[in-house]
């Protein structure tokens, strides 16, 4: 993994005004991956969007971590079902046009 794509967890928490425990708990639920490098904690920039989403759901909608976990899994399922629907629609269109 390219280290230039990593952000110190400390910095992220300062910028977003969130406690480090928030990210720790997200990691416990395997919702984000925190990288320990040279005794410093980092998070990959690709995961920031996910962290922001979790923040909104947790702080704005008061959804607890169990709820975040359930939502995360369900949204993944919705996403994969949407992809499947897209493929099936394309296939259906193919056979309808025959």
């Amino acid at each position: 993994m390219d280290t230039t794509d990593l952000i110190p967890v400390q910095l992220l928490c300062e910028r977003y005004d969130i406690p480090i425990s928030f990210l720790d708990t997200l990691q416990e639920f395997q919702l984000v991956e925190i990288i320990d490098e040279d005794n410093s904690l980092y998070i990959h920039t690709k995961q920031i969007k996910k962290v922001e989403k979790m923040m909104r759901l947790h702080y704005d909608l008061e959804i607890n971590f169990e709820g975040l976990d359930a939502i995360h899994n369900l949204l993944n399922q919705v996403e994969s079902l949407k992809k499947e629907v897209k493929i099936l629609r394309n296939k259906l269109r193919f056979y309808q046009d025959l």
Partner: peptide, 14 residues
């Protein structure tokens, strides 16, 4: 507000 926001929040309805 909380009830409706949970239902229609963009993060939950991408």
């Amino acid at each position: 507000y909380r009830k409706l926001a949970r239902k229609y929040h963009p993060d939950l309805n991408p």
